[in-house]
């Protein structure tokens, strides 16, 4: 019958539509990263790796505030060498965070960066950062974790000050479970 066929066709389309929307829910994850990059939402840093050296813009100074944060259950001492830097846009700046594992066991940490204001994130170019990799530390050991970054000269003029925070998460157990295999999926590797 006609109605029966029409119904069948419609049901298949609508089911297809809902499967598509289920997929769309997951597609929101990478879309969100693109969205973040475009709008500077959430201060995700996407620009990393080597960069051509350019001449620094000495006419302008930007205050860069560095913050080290421990997430829950992370007993390390973790703080920036210098809490406040003054940087010229275009200038390559080297600094470091100091970490110390006071516990009696060796642990692995992952540092997660975040920038405020969010729009500044796309102008902060990290050439090298300890946050690219998981950071193991033996019981009672100390480490200097290096950070090399450049602020883009295109930084909008109304931004005078940028905050760059690193939150340290204890991933010892996750690493042991993964046995150092693949990056956990779901989010972009930082």
């Amino acid at each position: 019958m006609d109605t029966a066929r029409a119904n069948r066709r419609l049901v298949i389309r609508l089911l297809g539509g809902s499967v598509l929307m289920f997929g769309f829910g997951f597609a929101l994850v990478p879309l969100y990263d693109v969205f973040c990059e475009v709008t500077g939402l959430n201060g995700k840093i996407t620009r990393t790796g080597a960069i051509e050296t350019v001449e620094a813009d000495t006419s302008r100074q930007v205050r860069v505030r560095l913050i080290g944060i421990n997430n829950e259950g992370m007993p390390w001492e973790f703080s920036p060498q210098q809490s406040l830097l003054t940087v010229n846009p275009g200038e390559m700046k080297q600094t470091a965070f100091q970490a110390y594992n006071p516990t009696g066991r060796s642990m692995v940490a992952q540092a997660i960066p975040s920038v405020s204001p969010g729009v500044a994130a796309q102008y902060l170019h990290k050439v090298n950062c300890f946050c690219f990799n998981a950071q193991p530390l033996q019981a009672g050991a100390r480490a200097d974790m290096p950070l090399l970054f450049v602020i883009d000269k295109e930084l909008p003029p109304e931004i005078h000050s940028i905050t760059l925070s690193y939150t340290l998460f204890d991933i010892t157990e996750a690493q042991a479970a993964d046995n150092g295999s693949a990056e956990p999926d779901g989010g972009s590797p930082i």
């Binding site: 994850v29 997430n71 992952q110 997660i112 956990p184």
Partner: peptide, 9 residues
């Protein structure tokens, strides 16, 4: 996985 877990990105 780490869709919503900051520790895994």
């Amino acid at each position: 996985t780490s869709f919503f877990n900051a520790a895994g990105g």
